[in-house]
Design a protein around this nucleic acid. Structure first.
Lengths: 246, 246
DNA sequence: AAGTGGTCTAGACCACCGG
DNA sequence: CGGTGGTCTAGACCACTTC
């Protein structure tokens, strides 16, 4: 006896640190409260700043902390649930949803999107940019790709770039009968464009939701939405269960 | 002229590095191929190893690379799509799905789960552990929490812990009429238990899928599944669109 | 100007895998 | 055993926000 537990499996310092900090956040800090700065925290725990940062990064990834350059580190509120599976048979922009059209232009979609749309790699499509705002904070940036063939009425489009043009494309979509849609979710890092729209640094972790809209027996449009992974919890409500939100 | 572009917005080195590497992966490497080791790569690009690692980490997060300690860094295959929205009215374990029961025991669920179940924080529930395997690789680890009240027939349970007991709980669930379910997806980091099951290091990024099963007008069970974020793309097929997989 | 988090360096040692 | 990625250090400077 004596040596009850030889350190047979030494835990990494940053991992232990993360646990300690996590417990402290639960018991000693309120939402919105600012933590001591990184240099002080590192000194207090007797580790290098880089090690302390590794722990903070994990906690930020889990949505427990929020860090802003020049400002400080604050305790994050619980993640907001954002509905993604809303209406299974609705085009984007139909209901009074939380999306705001930003801009629209003709652009060559990324290879993966072109494949979904069944377009040749070099063909242009309408690219409609939208922002989703919840509780006053931007939570998602989206680009909706609509092949020119899907909205023939817009062939001679004279609307100048801007929100108005985005609305014109969305409005034209409503004229089609939507047969259904399917979605996929994966982890990604925010490209520079999206990052600015989401008020984050480039490379910030995002949940990438790719939606395929089907009409007329073919893929009529594809939306690629990037949600802030630190602040968002995506919710998918399956048929009729929402009635139970008593 | 001469100075065509003053470096007014200097891009971080690791970001630029990531772009360069990403392009190289597309054009010069095949899936499964091993990259030069980190020390060599860093020297080749004239940066510190830590900077090179920051770029590699991002690429791994995006599912482009796979790194294994003691082995090396390899080019990852495209993410596998795993269906998450399968049957809107099926209990877990009903179909011949890809889940494998591992174990079952009585345990106090995490606070967030207890809240969903409407249980007091200190009450125990059946905790059924399952693993999901696709293409021979483990992609998800799940714990299904079933309140004792949901499966009263198991009150005097004499089955010893193990896969058999897990199957007993799942079998008992099938007797209830499932009214519906809803799901949420968020980013997390793998706890030690799940990490081992997923063949990853603790803290690896995972997509946490929380499913609430509703029966008899109340939450009858809650499943918390962690999917490997580096290798998985979660797919949600909405009603009837799958017919179009021509 | 002062203080914050973000980037970067050049080293060191450790844990793990393979031959 | 040698080689790999994983952890850790003690510094430095930069970009940004706030006062």
């Amino acid at each position: 006896m004596g040596t009850t537990q030889l350190e047979t499996v030494p835990e990494p310092k940053y991992w232990h640190l993360k646990t300690v900090l996590s417990n402290a956040l639960d018991s000693e800090f309120a939402v919105g409260e600012i933590l001591p700065n990184e240099r002080d925290l590192a000194a207090r725990f007797g580790v290098a700043r880089a090690t302390l940062r590794q722990a903070l990064e994990q906690l930020e990834l889990e949505g427990r902390l929020q860090r802003r350059r020049g400002v400080g580190t604050t305790v994050a509120p619980p993640r907001v649930g954002v509905a993604v599976g809303e209406a299974p048979h609705a085009w984007p922009g139909s209901g009074g949803d939380a999306w705001q059209p930003v801009d629209s232009s003709l652009r060559r979609p990324p290879a993966a999107v072109a494949r979904l749309l069944g377009l040749p790699a070099d063909e242009e499509a309408h690219a409609v940019r939208r922002t989703r705002v919840t509780h006053g904070q931007p939570v998602a940036a989206e680009v909706l790709y609509v092949p020119v063939a899907t909205v023939p009425a817009l062939a001679a489009l004279d609307t100048p770039p801007g929100p108005a043009r985005a609305r014109a494309v969305l409005h034209e979509l409503q004229r089609l009968e939507l047969a259904g849609q399917d979605r996929s979710v994966e982890l990604g890092s925010a490209p520079a464009d999206d990052a600015k729209q989401l008020d984050r640094l480039p490379g910030a972790p995002v949940l990438v939701v790719t939606t395929r809209f089907v009409a007329d027996g073919r893929t009529a449009a594809v939306a690629v939405a990037t949600y802030r992974a630190d602040t968002c919890r995506l919710t998918f409500d399956d048929n009729g269960v929402e009635l139970l939100a008593s």
